[in-house]
Write a protein that binds this DNA or RNA. Structure first.
Length: 287
DNA sequence: AAGAGGCCCTGATAGC
DNA sequence: TGCTATCAGGGCCTCT
């Protein structure tokens, strides 16, 4: 489940690898991702340079030399691998695959460069790859998304006023991309734990101090996760050295029944289903 | 317009 | 052992 930090880690290594490189060929084995990959996808990329790789929220944005964009979303189980002439590099550790090697199944898209290729693998096909014609179209595509937690627009006035006129629990808002973009189910639980706010709390009941805490810890948790190379849900080891470590810093996520990490707290972590999503919290620390 | 719920998909796991 | 049911959840869609 790549969220903003994991996508940022992938962006960094992908940018290093393919910036200013020319696409020689594109192979598509399965067009049926979340959205069908259009038939002209291959010809659109062929013989063009990738000028740089950017990111917004959980979206990777490959800038193409003709001023168009190739947008990639990894959905829940998408991974990107680099197959070098000599070695295989896995750029994300968030899939359900345990193997550090290239999975045999579900390699849907290959983008081939001079002496290496990048491979998009996605067992559940919740991800997608789209061509965006120009900047205006890109802006339109992201129009519905709220600011990232790092955005100066994500401030106390925005958050407090947003909550004031709405009626939904805070957990739901944190994973609502219209409100704030980039946070998913894992980091939402972590942010609320650090903010000492119960995930079921109605957002319009939060005072300004609590809103400030959410803003502060949203930034802090995501930055820390990026610093740690993202989160690996499965505990595998990999020789390519691109594994994430943030899962070791989880306070609540997937820690149901384990001791709360707050010093002096003797409670156990609880799991609740909120709007069909598992939510982890400490009933004592998060009132 | 806000918010609830459904759907897409495969693999891991639980239960019989 | 082999079957079926359930769960995992991001984004988009429909309905109220």
């Amino acid at each position: 489940m790549p969220e903003l930090p994991e996508v940022e880690i992938i962006r960094q290594s992908l940018n290093k690898k393919i910036k200013q490189k020319k696409v020689l060929k594109v192979i598509i084995r399965n067009r049926n991702l979340r959205f069908k990959i259009p038939l002209n996808f291959e010809s659109h990329l062929k013989e063009k340079k990738i000028t740089k790789v950017e990111r917004f929220s959980k979206y990777l944005i490959l800038n193409i030399s003709d001023n168009s964009f190739c947008m990639i979303h990894l959905g829940m189980s998408g991974t990107i691998h680099i197959l070098d002439n000599k070695k295989l590099l896995k750029l994300t550790n968030t899939s359900f695959y345990n193997s550090p090697f290239l999975p045999k199944k579900h390699n849907h898209v290959e983008i081939i460069f001079n002496n290496f290729k990048i491979i998009y693998n996605d067992p559940r096909r919740f991800g997608f790859i789209q061509i965006i014609k120009n900047k205006e179209e890109l802006k339109e595509r992201f129009r519905h998304l709220g600011p990232e937690p790092f955005d100066v627009k994500f401030d106390i006035d925005y958050v407090y006023n947003y909550f004031k006129k709405r009626k939904k629990n805070i957990k739901n808002f944190l994973i609502d991309q219209n409100f704030v973009s980039g946070i998913g189910n894992i980091y939402a639980s972590e942010i609320l734990f650090l903010s000492k706010i119960n995930p079921s709390t109605n957002a319009n009941l939060l005072n300004k101090l609590e809103c400030q805490k959410i803003i502060f810890y949203a930034k802090k948790v995501l930055l820390k996760a990026i610093e740690k190379g993202g989160s690996s849900i499965q505990n595998f080891t990999n020789t390519s050295g691109v594994e994430g470590n943030f899962q070791k810093n989880f306070n609540v996520y997937q820690r149901e029944g384990l001791a709360c990490k707050t010093i002096g707290c003797t409670d156990l972590i609880t799991k609740n289903i909120i709007s069909k999503r598992s939510t982890f919290f400490c009933n004592t620390c998060q009132k």
